[in-house]
Measured scan of single mutants.
Amino acid sequence: APRKVEMRRDPVLGFGFVAGSEKPVVVRSVTPGGPSEGKLIPGDQIVMINDEPVSAAPRERVIDLVRSCKESILLTVIQP
């Protein structure tokens, strides 16, 4: 079942996760003590960023979407 995860941007750590460059977009790592800790799990597949589906989106679009979130971000993720 999809999970909705909302995180506030940390001034130092950002959102505190690293996503892979393949499709679908998969969470590779979560920064300890960062905003994503306890919310995202490595292996989570990101299916939506805010209200935009990203399963088939180019990597550049995913990066732009994350960067455009100055304060908070809403991710919809699934464990494949």
Rank of each mutant, 00 (worst) to 15 (best):
K23R: 12
G43E: 06
V18A: 10
V77K: 03
M48E: 12
S72Q: 14
E37M: 07
L65Q: 08
Q45P: 00
P11H: 05
P24T: 03
E52C: 10
V77G: 02
P24W: 00
K23S: 13
A1F: 06
S72M: 08
L13V: 14
R9W: 09
E52T: 12
P11Y: 04
G38W: 05
L74F: 15
V27H: 01
F17E: 01
L65M: 14
T31E: 13
G14C: 03
V66F: 10
F15G: 01
P11T: 08
I63R: 12
E22T: 06
V47P: 01
S72N: 12
V30E: 01
P53D: 15
D51S: 11
L65C: 06
P32F: 05
L75F: 08
P32H: 11
P35G: 02
P2I: 15
F15T: 01
V25R: 04
I63M: 12
I41A: 14
I73G: 03
D64E: 13
R8M: 13
D51I: 03
A1W: 03
S21R: 09
G14H: 04
A1E: 04
P80L: 04
R67P: 01
I73S: 03
K70N: 09
V27C: 04
S29R: 10
V12T: 15
I41G: 09
R28H: 09
N50G: 14
M48C: 14
P80H: 06
P11K: 09
S29G: 10
V12R: 13
R9I: 07
V12I: 10
G43F: 05
C69D: 04
T31R: 12
D64K: 10
R8W: 11
V62W: 04
M48G: 13
K23W: 09
F17W: 05
V27M: 01
P32W: 05
K39C: 12
S36A: 15
R61L: 10
G33C: 09
S72F: 06
D10T: 04
E52W: 10
S68W: 05
V47R: 06
P42N: 10
D10H: 07
T76E: 13
M7Q: 00
S72I: 06
R28V: 09
G34C: 03
V26N: 07
M48L: 09
P53C: 12
E71M: 06
P58C: 11
F15V: 01
Q45L: 07
P42H: 07
R28I: 11
L40C: 03
E37S: 11
C69K: 09
A19T: 14
R28N: 14
F15H: 01
P42E: 13
V27E: 02
S36W: 00
K23N: 15
R3Y: 06
E6N: 13
F15L: 05
V54D: 00
P42A: 12
P11G: 07
R9S: 07
P53N: 14
R8K: 15
Q79V: 05
Q45W: 06
E22D: 09
V47E: 09
D51T: 09
V66G: 02
A1R: 04
P35A: 06
L65N: 04
N50H: 08
A19K: 03
V27P: 02
V62R: 00
A1I: 15
F17S: 01
R8I: 14
S68R: 11
P53S: 14
I41P: 00
E71R: 10
P35C: 03
A57Q: 12
Q45S: 08
L75T: 04
R59L: 14
G38F: 08
N50P: 00
V25W: 09
G38Y: 07
V26L: 11
P35Q: 04
V66Q: 03
D10E: 05
